[in-house]
Nucleic acid binder design. Structure first.
Lengths: 214, 214, 214, 214
DNA sequence: AATGAATGAGCCTTCATTCAT
DNA sequence: TATGAATGAAGGCTCATTCAT
């Protein structure tokens, strides 16, 4: 209808905007009450529309939950990609911690993430989606560690890379829990904790993690 | 309450037994369906009693949830105490990972724990209980690290202990997430990941974690 | 309304065309789902127009139902008129049975008819419309029977004609039910059933039906 | 609990009583509004209980509809069995007509029956149940006609019996429609109509219906 | 004339909770 | 103490209807 590129008025775009609006409201509600406790009425009110209208854009409450989960997992992937994109991993992790602590939008939300993990052990569909996301996340980690090792001329075996990936991933995900639980912690403490863990995992020669230390 | 080994017949004791029975059933249901999705009817059936009877022992579904959360947090405290009780932390962490992966009873349940963390960011009462549990858990960690440092004659400052506690706690909690997400991972990989993280955190001289590594 | 064959372009005519289009779609939907289960959205889609537009031509879903009912009753009247128009009633009844069985359009639809009868016992307006249609139908039957009797020089009293009309009508309407219930019945069986009933009702002298046979 | 045979207090019995109460209310509502238009709230109110309680006894609204349909079809079968049980078929049909006209309970309800027929052409489950009921009904008719013919020493072929069964069934079902449509008709007229149809179908020698009358 | 986005009432259903027994 | 029948308050969802465009 409107060929100019300024305000988006296409049919498709309108649909997208509404979906976005609903998803934002839903995310807010899910964060506030959890997936099950959040009500469609609440989501509708938050989105500033009637409950019935939501069903023009989503088949189900379940479909909304799925969309939010997909979104969250995608954001996690993006975060990891960004983590691994440059130097100063430590600083980036701190920023992630702050985002989790403050509940920044556009970053995977920590309580929501934890609920998704819990739900993934119950719902097969969520479990599958999470499996794929986990695989992609793992790959991003290992690829980055591999590049890093290459740059430092410390050739590292696949197994060692995998071990380090898991270690880093577990630690970072643990930080998500801490961000929820200790929003008032001073950042310098966190920074040193991150540093102390990364120091060994990244700087150490491959040999150290190659053999079991048991 | 009743230290004698004879069959307990006191009123109070009977109450306790019934409460226990309900709580066990509730935990089962909560693990299976989550706090909100689990129904009182389901809990009653699992406990082998009528739905109405539960209300003689608990005021609310909410009260049951609170009790379960308290229980879980206590078990976490116990786990940490046990972790820190002896040598070979690595082996104990592996055992914890296995327990989480297999959903062993009598150990803090991983999905439930994650849901509790999420819920703690919504419900003030749960948040407070969790705060106290976190403090106790932290103290247990630092006390143990302190003893360890003393034994190794590596006197370590309070701040450094705190930093290490947080690092270890985050890593271990992150492993709870991984246990849920990757139940099929081979344990040797986990063992090496644990080893690689602990190596630096425990063996390193205090100095390294005393100053920010940024 | 417009007897000329040129394309009709009057406002009124356009209205009529749209109404017709809607009614056809509605009838399709009503046959498929029943009056209450059919949705305005479905009717709109079937008619190839938007849901809102329907309300320019019909005040209500109820109004559409009324219109369809009127149409169906008119078609019934037409069918009866045709039945009674010539010789070989038996053959015409068979054709009606086939039309019902196959759900031919342009003939009163059997399941719809049954639903209308049921509805006529609930809705006063429908009841009234049906009463009038019944009266007209009855008149058509009696008129035809009267002619037939006259042609055969078997003068018959009004009461006897009424009795025969009812008998025939009941039998034919019962065949509508059978057409719905036994679409796979072989037509020869039906033909003989029709024949056996008509034989006595039409060929018999008036006397036999004049007095109660109890 | 109560061994005496007087008031029924068995668990099973209580359940049965409640189911009965619900079914009666449901039937009332279905007759009044039709299957789809009747609401669970209305049924509950009619039954004098809360809506939620109904779900202790029926899984679904659909299950209630199924139960009512089964009941109706069973009652139809019973009616046919009774019709064919003795002499004076005419009188029995009149009584059936009266029952339909007056909506007597404990007899297949006419409008409901018509709606069931209509629905049987849409819902596969209902269709199947109806098929079986139709088969049984047909058998009852033919068996009875066969006995009748034997008693009168008018040996009749299977085909002829089948033809007469269909004819009678169609006529009687048509009377159900007439009972709904013409509740004020005088019974003598109906009696004579019934007589005129039965006269030929029952009294006539087999030969007449054996060959097609076309 | 035509669209389809939007509403809101109402439906079916579930479930925590109560209470008579 | 124990039951489970019963309630009532939501909750998710549908759909006839309206209205801005």
């Amino acid at each position: 209808m409107n060929a100019r590129l300024e305000p988006c008025r296409t049919e498709t775009c309108r649909q997208q905007q509404q979906r976005e609006r609903i998803l934002q409201a839903a995310q807010q509600c899910f964060i506030k009450h959890g997936f099950h406790a959040a009500s469609m009425a609440g989501i509708a009110e938050t989105a500033g529309m009637s409950a019935g209208l939501i069903y023009r854009y989503f088949e189900n409450k379940s479909a909304i939950i799925q969309a939010i989960i997909t979104q969250q997992l995608d954001e996690r992937r993006a975060s990891v990609a960004e983590l691994a994109s440059g130097h100063d991993l430590e600083q980036r992790i701190i920023e992630l911690f702050i985002a989790w602590r403050d509940g920044s939008p556009s970053v995977m939300n920590a309580p929501l993430f934890l609920e998704i993990v819990a739900e993934s052990s119950r719902d097969a569909v969520i479990g599958k989606a999470f499996d794929e996301s986990d695989a992609a996340t793992r790959d991003a980690f290992t690829a980055w560690l591999s590049q890093l090792a290459a740059r430092r001329q410390q050739p590292t075996g696949d197994q060692a890379l995998r071990v380090r990936s898991i270690a880093i991933q577990a630690f970072i995900e643990g930080l998500a829990i801490r961000a929820v639980r200790e929003p008032d912690i001073d950042l310098d403490t966190v920074r040193r904790a991150v540093g102390s863990v990364l120091a060994h995992l990244i700087d150490a020669p491959a040999a150290e993690t190659e053999s079991s230390s048991a």
